[in-house]
Structures are given as structure tokens and as C-alpha cells.
Simulated assay, not measured.
Amino acid sequence: MRERGHKKNTFRQVDRLLNTYCEGCFLHKQLVTDHGRRHAHRFCITKCTVGEQLKMMGSQLNEE
């Protein structure tokens, strides 16, 4: 039961990060315009600090 609450909390944190930093991100929009969607996505996952946090949270969820 405790694990379920932890997962719920992690999902809330992910949602908060996405809504706060990713939604409407100017850098992402500009990268899509200049280099395409795949390049922008790759940047977010590998070089953006928020993307790194999201990736870490996803890994934690996969371990549980």
C-alpha cells in the first residue's frame, strides 16, 4: 500500500514539473522550428535539467 502512495506522489511531481517548466517552453519551440521535433525531444531528454529530473523519476517508477 505504501508503494502505491509513493508512485502517486512521484506522478504528481512529474506533472508539476511538466506544467511548470515544459509546457510553453520557448527553447523547445525554437528547437522544433530550427531543427525539428526529434532534435528538440533529444535535447530535452539529454541536456535539459528538467528532462534529466523527469528521466530519473521515470527510472525510479520502473524500479518499483
Rank of each mutant, 00 (worst) to 15 (best):
M1S: 13
M1D: 15
M1L: 11
R2T: 15
R2I: 15
E3L: 09
R4S: 13
G5T: 14
K7H: 13
K8A: 13
K8F: 12
T10N: 11
F11Q: 08
R12N: 13
R12Y: 09
R12F: 03
V14K: 01
D15Y: 04
R16Q: 09
R16P: 00
R16H: 07
L17G: 00
L17M: 08
L18I: 12
L18S: 10
N19D: 04
T20P: 00
T20N: 07
T20I: 12
Y21A: 02
Y21P: 03
Y21S: 02
E23W: 06
E23R: 13
E23D: 14
G24Y: 04
C25S: 04
F26K: 07
L27N: 10
L27V: 03
L27Y: 09
L27Q: 12
L27D: 07
H28N: 11
H28P: 00
K29R: 06
K29T: 03
Q30C: 04
L31G: 00
L31D: 00
V32D: 02
T33H: 06
T33P: 05
D34I: 00
H35L: 05
H35T: 03
R37I: 06
R37V: 06
H39C: 10
H39R: 08
A40F: 01
A40V: 03
A40T: 02
H41A: 05
R42P: 06
F43W: 07
C44A: 11
C44V: 15
C44I: 10
I45R: 07
I45S: 10
I45G: 07
I45L: 02
T46C: 04
T46K: 12
K47P: 02
C48R: 00
C48H: 07
C48F: 04
T49W: 05
T49N: 15
V50N: 03
V50L: 02
G51F: 01
G51P: 01
E52R: 15
E52A: 13
E52V: 04
E52T: 09
Q53N: 13
Q53L: 09
L54H: 02
K55P: 01
M56S: 13
G58R: 12
G58I: 09
G58W: 08
G58S: 14
S59L: 13
S59Q: 15
S59C: 15
Q60E: 09
Q60F: 05
Q60A: 11
Q60M: 14
Q60V: 14
N62W: 14
E63A: 09
E64M: 09
